[in-house]
Design a protein around this nucleic acid. Sequence first.
DNA 1: CACTTCTTGCGTCATAATTG
DNA 2: CAATTATGACGCAAGAAGTG
Length: 235
Amino acid sequence: MSKCGRKKYIKTNLRQMTMEIDSQQDGSIPDSVAESESAHMQMQTGQNSIPTLAQVATIAETDESAESESVIDFHKRREILSRRPSYRKILNELSSDVPGVPKIEEEKSEEEGTSPNIAAMAVPTSIYQTSTGQYTTTGDMPTYQIRAPTTALPQGVVMAASPGSLHSPQQLAEEATRKRELRLMKNREAAKECRRRKKEYVKCLESRVAVLEVQNKKLIEELETLKDIYSPKTD
DNA sequence: CACTTCTTGCGTCATAATTG
DNA sequence: CAATTATGACGCAAGAAGTG
């Protein structure tokens, strides 16, 4: 497909997804989507990204009354989607919820990501450094500790003269341009960092799921054992 | 093998959240 | 409360995977 064709495809696809979501008044994900890998696409494009805690609550709330509700209009949907999750907060909450919570790692394990070998994450303590924080893993749950941000500007950033020394319109325009470029560059970095955190957050959730599944399995087995012991056999 | 579809990551914008 | 930072949304591109 040519690039143009590809763009057309993506746009069509996005429109379709948006329409799908519009029709999903109860906020649930269609099985066909939820079960397919393409759910990733929707996460990426944001139209059906991971619900934030607030969203989950909202969805749960609306779920009950939603059946009779009519279409969620664009602004409402937008409003819901725009509620911020703050991975930092959530991760902190997760780690404080569960005492002795393990901590997640960074890039290194990202390579492992191709095969979601979750079990491999439940390994004795290890510590990883990232550009903004430190992770340790102790087997159960990953935890992420953010260290004080070091607003390290990328190399090559030149700080301009103070605005007070600017006079001509041309200088002002240059100053504006410089400020904009600086802002874009900072935001670029912030976006990268944000995506990295998001990936780790998702990994954290995945490993939590893995741990809980194991726990669940054990409990079920235990229950069966106890049943065998305490229920008299009626031959 | 050409074409299509999916996945992933990036840059930017708007705006919520945080900080001083 | 203004300034700064964090993050959802969006559009785009490149590469991988699937298909006829």
